[in-house]
């Protein structure tokens, strides 16, 4: 339990990576790192498919990266109708770590450019759902 608190609306209640949401509540965005082979994962995984280890640690994601791509949605799926328009994008931190999230509402559409410097930070919706978002670097 616990993962239903993730995002605008979660479709997953039970996962071994639910601690991710507790970290968000503490103000941290964390990925997992394999204790046996050192492979790092974001989004977090409970199991390492590289070495078959099930033993994972958490690590804090880098804060600064570059916006690799983005899109602004003017229509939303069922359950998200109140939100559009909203912008989502992919951040590249280098070293094989990337992340997908929404961009902060405060960024004006004409400021958003492929390759711009961005940061990531935890984010709480009005209904206390916990997420993370991309903001200007």
């Amino acid at each position: 339990m616990g993962f239903e608190k993730f995002g605008r609306k979660s479709f997953t209640a039970v996962t071994k990576t639910a601690k991710f949401v507790d970290f968000l509540a503490e103000g941290k965005v964390e990925g997992t790192v394999c204790k046996d082979c050192g492979a790092r994962f974001f989004p977090p995984r409970a199991d390492c498919a590289k070495c078959f280890s099930k033993s994972m640690d958490w690590f804090e994601m880098p804060k600064k990266g570059k916006l690799e791509t983005f899109t602004t949605a003017y229509y939303a799926p069922f359950g998200f109708e109140a939100d559009p328009p909203y912008t989502m994008g992919v951040v590249d931190f280098g070293g094989g770590l990337k992340l997908f999230a929404r961009l902060a509402k405060e960024i004006k559409p004409d400021e958003i450019k492929v390759g711009m410097d961005v940061i990531i930070r935890p984010f709480k919706y009005d209904d206390n759902q916990l997420s993370f978002e991309i903001a200007k670097g």
Binding site: G7, K9, F11, P43, T69, A73, Y75, M88, R102
Partner: peptide, 25 residues
């Protein structure tokens, strides 16, 4: 990805738009 992406309100056009944006740039 329903666990890590759908909670942001994703849908098919948005995913392909991510490709379009980077490709066009």
């Amino acid at each position: 990805d329903i666990q890590w992406e759908a909670p942001f309100g994703t849908m098919m056009p948005a995913y392909y738009a991510l490709y379009a944006q980077a490709y066009m740039a």
